[in-house]
């Protein structure tokens, strides 16, 4: 990985979690800046050239969602959100507000590291790559062509758009709302997730060997879908 040395800001008020993240991330070669409140976090974000922010949604001084909204007003630096809540609404809100990914406490360090790698890679990526190839799927944006292990597969326009968005965000979760607005524009997304599921089902039938245990497109119940980029 070429991102070693990336500068990460951790906004979390729990000393134990600060310590855990600091030790582990330092061991993986990242530089760490710590902030124990939303206010300090936003100040630190303004003063440093950051590569990534890890933001706890439960902060003592203000809501983590507010911090997120505030940050997104002026910076596109990748943000990974930490939450204890099982409630998916907070996660969806965070993602729709521009968070790159979320982790539910307690989480495994491996998983967090993988998410950090994905987020950093996306940040460094040039936006208009003409071709993406991941795990045997090759998608050519110029010719609108998709190949699975060298064999061309036929996709309907909507299936193609879905795959394109998911692969461009490979490794990251894409919410129902994000998918729906990017494909259909402004729709009432509360009533339209049904459409999404049907098309995802069709797409899976074409690229997955076993749709009940998908290798490429996994469901995040209540939130959205994720294209699995790397094997854990």
């Amino acid at each position: 990985m070429n991102q070693t040395g990336a500068k990460i800001l951790i906004i979390d008020d729990e000393p134990a979690i600060q310590k855990l993240l600091r030790l582990t991330l330092k061991a993986h070669g990242y530089q760490i800046i710590e902030a124990s409140s939303g206010e300090k976090g936003m100040m630190n974000a303004g003063m440093n050239r950051l590569d990534l922010i890890i933001l706890d949604l439960g902060l003592p001084d203000m809501s983590g969602l507010e911090v997120l909204k505030n940050l997104r007003e002026w910076t596109q630096v990748p943000i990974i959100v930490l939450t204890v809540q099982e409630d998916e609404r907070d996660k969806v809100t965070a993602l729709d507000l521009g968070a790159d990914d979320y982790m539910v406490k307690p989480f495994g360090m491996n998983e967090l590291l993988a998410r950090i790698r994905v987020a950093l890679r996306h940040a460094s990526q040039t936006v208009d790559e003409p071709v993406i190839e991941l795990k045997g799927i090759r998608i050519d944006f110029v010719q609108r062509k998709v190949e699975l292990h060298g064999k061309t597969i036929k996709l309907t326009p909507i299936e193609y758009d879905l795959l394109k968005i998911l692969m461009q965000n490979a490794g990251k979760v894409v919410t129902h709302k994000q998918l729906l607005t990017q494909i259909w524009g402004n729709v009432d997304y509360n009533n339209s997730t049904h459409y999404l599921r049907v098309y995802i089902g069709h797409l899976r039938k074409k690229i997955e060997t076993d749709s009940t245990q998908p290798l490429y497109i996994v469901t995040e119940p209540g939130i959205g879908y994720r294209f699995v980029a790397e094997q854990d």
């Binding site: 995802i200 089902g201 996994v218 119940p221």
Partner: peptide, 17 residues
């Protein structure tokens, strides 16, 4: 209950994962 239309097989896949 936050009900929505659900593909049982999809959810089974998530559970198995």
């Amino acid at each position: 209950l936050k009900r929505r239309e659900t593909d049982i097989l999809d959810i089974l896949g998530v559970a198995l994962a």
